[in-house]
């Protein structure tokens, strides 16, 4: 009897994942059919299968597809990074943005654009930002994000910090990098400040095939690793001593989890700019729907992260077209009410 009930229960969890996949496919198709060049679904399909004219090819293959894939991969990466950080640090507030990693990336971009002159703004209209040297911005953003992540991990390892202290240290580091950013911007020319502020808005369109490919490889590997560790994460969420009693090397699992999660965050943020909140709400929403079992929480958080980011980007493109709103802001507009609703409603009782 227990077996049947358990099979039904597992079936329901798989059902939720299946629905997420379905929603994701629908959203991706919707995204593929929206953009500044009006293409009907038939043209889109034809361009995908047999190739279209030059304009259609560029719009689909060079603009829309990499943008959609960037959203899928970065959304999954940021959400699952938040999921693992929340588990490893045993804190529901842990996420790439609350641990200071995003702030550090923004500081790196500020250094590149303002101090090293990698970007400026030509016009005050949207889309007029000229990043002269995107590689420098990306590399510095990545370096500072990894620096913050390594600092957190080292404090945890060598300072013997408790998980609560690590979250506090992350908040302190984040505020330190924000202060650095403020000082740099205070003395900068207004055009450069405008350029860097624009960078921090986050934009999926920044990623071309190369960047998408790098993210795809890293996020896929990270997802595989996290999924393999889901039993260990379940053990850790049952209490640290319990996990040790079950043979889990808690320190090693925690350190490796934080490193991998930080790495995918650093890559996503440095390629696309700051996309906050997904790492926090993606896993928190799924916890309320699917529970704390990481065998289901990890894949479903990844899917929901992709779904939120892709939907937010598509709304950002269409809501007051041709203006493209900053995706980070739309993410919060879509995610926050949903999250608040789930907080009020409480956990799913089934």
């Amino acid at each position: 009897m227990v077996s049947n009930e358990y099979s039904r229960y597992i079936g329901r969890k798989r059902g939720v994942i299946f629905i997420l996949v379905l929603l994701l496919i629908i959203t991706a198709l919707w995204a593929l059919n929206t953009g500044s060049i009006a293409l009907n679904p038939v043209q889109v399909l034809k361009t995908l299968i047999t190739g279209g004219n030059q304009v259609e090819n560029v719009a689909i293959w060079n603009i829309r597809l990499p943008r959609i894939l960037a959203g899928l991969v970065a959304g999954a990466g940021l959400s699952v990074a938040g999921c693992v950080m929340q588990n490893n640090l045993r804190n529901p507030l842990a996420s790439p943005s609350t641990l200071g990693i995003s702030n550090a990336a923004a500081f790196g971009a500020n250094v590149a654009i303002i101090l090293l002159g990698a970007g400026t703004i030509a016009n005050t209209g949207a889309g007029q930002v000229i990043i002269n040297n995107p590689y420098m911005v990306t590399i510095l953003a990545f370096l500072f994000a990894m620096l913050a992540a390594l600092l957190i991990v080292c404090l945890a390892k060598f300072g013997g910090f408790t998980p609560e202290a690590i979250v506090l240290a992350g908040v302190a580091l984040g505020s330190l990098f924000t202060a650095g950013t403020t000082i740099i911007q205070y003395f900068a020319e207004d055009v450069k400040v405008a350029a860097v502020v624009f960078w921090t808005f986050g934009d999926l369109g920044r990623a071309a095939w190369n960047e998408v490919f790098i993210m795809l490889v890293l996020v896929t590997m990270a997802l595989g690793y996290f999924f393999l560790k889901s039993w260990d994460y379940n053990a850790i969420s049952s209490g640290e001593e319990t996990a040790r009693g079950l043979g889990v090397n808690v320190d090693r699992v925690r350190m490796a989890g934080m490193l991998v999660a930080s790495l995918i965050t650093a890559v996503a943020v440095s390629f696309l700019g700051i996309i906050a909140f997904i790492g926090l709400i993606g896993p928190q929403i799924m916890r309320r729907i699917i529970g704390d079992d990481h065998r289901f929480l990890i894949p479903s958080s990844a899917l929901l992260g992709s779904l939120i980011l892709l939907a937010a980007d598509t709304v950002a493109k269409t809501v007051i077209a041709p203006v493209v709103l900053p995706v980070g802001a739309v993410t919060s507009f879509l995610g926050a009410p949903l999250f608040l609703y789930l907080l009020v409603r409480g956990y799913n009782r089934k």
């Binding site: 229960y9 379940n234 969420s237 049952s238 001593e241 319990t242 009693g245 529970g291 704390d292 956990y347």
Partner: peptide
């Protein structure tokens, strides 16, 4: 252990 966590696992 002496202290138990209550998480959302069946």
């Amino acid at each position: 252990s002496q202290h138990q966590e209550r998480n959302r696992i069946t």
